[in-house]
Amino acid sequence: MTPQRITRFIAREWSEYSDRDRRVERALEGLTGAALKAGRLALSVRDDTLVAICAERGLATELRFQQRELLKTLAAAGFDGVTQMRIRLSQTPRAPEPVAPLERREIPDTARRILSETAARVTDPTLASALERLARAARHSARDD
């Protein structure tokens, strides 16, 4: 009989912790969303304690003032056993979420012409002006290249 690899057990334990931490972050996203996305804050639950790792003292102070609200929100999200909070400072609590680069799209000349023709025939002035703006914006982006 071959012994099982230890990584099988470690991976399962780590996965449980990371899944729980993601649920905690989703639950508190309304209160801490901008700091989480910017990578200035990481949240985790250890036993009965919410652990917040902050990159800045100002953010740590803000979280101290929001402590009751954060714990109430966690309780409402199903984390009933969390009764206290600890705040730690660290230079990089977590990597910021990657920002997808904007993709430049080009509208062909025939499509721009169709947009302009359709705008001329549409009776709704709001829709007609939107179609004209789209045709002009496509024309400007083609010139910028």
Rank of each mutant, 00 (worst) to 15 (best):
D80R: 13
P101T: 11
T118I: 12
P125I: 08
E29R: 08
A77G: 00
Q91I: 10
L43E: 05
R46S: 15
A35H: 01
T32E: 02
I87T: 11
P101R: 14
E97M: 11
P108A: 13
V51P: 02
A52Q: 05
R86M: 11
R46A: 13
L41C: 08
Q4P: 09
D80P: 01
I107L: 15
A60P: 02
I114H: 14
D48V: 01
R105E: 14
D124R: 12
I107F: 10
L41V: 08
G78P: 04
G30H: 00
T73F: 00
E13W: 09
Q84E: 13
T73M: 04
L74W: 01
R139V: 01
S90P: 03
R94W: 05
Q67R: 15
E16D: 10
D144A: 13
A120G: 11
P98E: 05
R143E: 15
V122F: 06
L115T: 05
D21C: 03
A76E: 07
A119S: 12
T123N: 12
R143T: 12
P98H: 03
A130T: 11
A27M: 04
L59I: 08
R113T: 15
L41Q: 03
L63H: 02
D145P: 10
R46K: 14
G33C: 01
E132I: 11
V45L: 05
R68K: 09
A77P: 06
T49F: 00
V122Q: 07
T110M: 14
L50Y: 00
R133S: 12
T92Y: 10
A60Q: 04
P101W: 09
A130L: 13
A135E: 09
P125C: 08
A119T: 11
A60F: 01
E97Q: 11
L43C: 05
D48P: 04
R86A: 14
G30T: 00
A38N: 06
R112T: 02
A100V: 12
H140C: 06
P101N: 11
G58P: 03
P98A: 10
A138S: 14
L74R: 03
E25G: 03
T118H: 12
